[in-house]
Amino acid sequence: MKRDVLSALARLALALFLLMPLIPLAIWSVAHGWRFPALLPSELSLAAWSYALSPVSGVVGSLGLTFFIAAVTSVIATALAYPAGRALGRLRFPGRSVVLVLVLAPAVLPAIAVALGLQGLFLRMGWTGTIWGVVLAHLIPALPYPTLVLTAVFARFDPHHEDQARCLGARPLQVLLHVTLPAVLPGLRTGAVLAFLISWSQYLLTLSIGGGKVQTLPLLLFTFATSGRNDLTGAVAMIYVLPALAFMALLLRQRSKTAPLPNRTDR
């Protein structure tokens, strides 16, 4: 009994810990004056929200831009990862482990190691300050995730189903649409979500390649966070987090329908 209470408390603490940093941000977004030692703001105000949602601040446009860049990055990364994941997961060939290390490298090597050289390269190509330049830059850290997820998915994928479908006279496109894709869809979706989130949170690569002209939300948020406007920072942070949460919730809801997490007890 006592153990149950303890573990329930531990779970509650975990839930609080996971939500913790978002709470003061949410409160700050409606605070006007919240100084030590007040536990709650002295005055509530929607001024920060109205500024953040006004066209002057550029937050809404920036939200759309950030979403667009992340979505395009995710689609390209997943499209490139699909054949590569299939090759790495299903086939044995010389150099496979070298390719694996190469795929993993951008996830392990910090963005700064890439950003400095990439800026010089893109400057000469005239790609800095462009949305496509930023998408290309985001591809680097985003690619490993869908590739590794799809490698694992294809390693478990049974190609006999494809063979059977072919024997029954299905054309290659039909095999892909009706057999292969449904089987690897959860992995495809997980990889796409991870690539999306990597691009969605990217700061340094956007700063160095976008050169300030491609103003994604993390850049905007950083400017407010380093200028002491906690209310604006809170409002922009909420605007930044909420769509990503909704997006994740939507996808995970779908995923839990197709591939539920284990729902059994061990004792």
Partner: peptide, 17 residues
């Protein structure tokens, strides 16, 4: 949820806490 919250946002939250 933690996965969807960018580092910058979390860092500001930690600062306020």
């Amino acid at each position: 949820v933690g996965l969807a919250v960018p580092h910058v946002v979390g860092a500001v939250g930690i600062l306020y806490l």
